[in-house]
């Protein structure tokens, strides 16, 4: 009887844990293959990097597009070109923000 009670208790506790931690499993995602065609640049909103020295099996650049995330091969030239374009874009915004520093833009 005691062991049945204990079992019920443990299962209840674990189930509660499940309810408490209903997180999205985004951290468990991995790119397993790459998209074959080239992506149009204007649909890209941002990117992230998947490194095979971490939990995932292959290296990948994950572009965030209007439709969702997509896996691309960092060995391909167009992929790295896009990454550079995105970096440049970010750099321009950064420099503009710095040059506007102290002006009325920064008051907000």
């Amino acid at each position: 009887m005691v062991s049945v009670k204990a079992a019920v208790m443990v299962i209840t506790v674990l189930t509660l844990c499940l309810w408490v931690t209903r997180t999205s499993a985004a951290h468990r995602e991995c790119c397993l293959r790459y998209m074959k065609k080239k992506l149009p640049f204007f649909v890209i909103k941002g990117y992230s990097v998947q490194d095979k020295r971490e939990m995932c099996p292959i290296n990948a650049i994950i572009f965030h597009t209007r439709k969702g995330k997509t896996c691309t091969d960092p060995k391909l030239n167009w992929v790295m070109h896009y990454v550079n374009l995105l970096r440049n874009k970010a750099q321009i915004v950064h420099t503009e923000a710095q040059s506007n520093n102290g002006s009325f833009f920064s008051s907000s």
């Binding site: 995602e29 065609k37 992506l39 149009p40 969702g68 896996c71």
Partner: peptide, 21 residues
């Protein structure tokens, strides 16, 4: 031009292992 030709780009989403989860 891009709009006309490539709007139907197929994305390959990262695998989230939904069944396994």
């Amino acid at each position: 031009m891009y709009n006309l030709t490539d709007l139907d780009y197929d994305i390959v989403e990262p695998c989230s292992f939904q069944n396994n989860n």
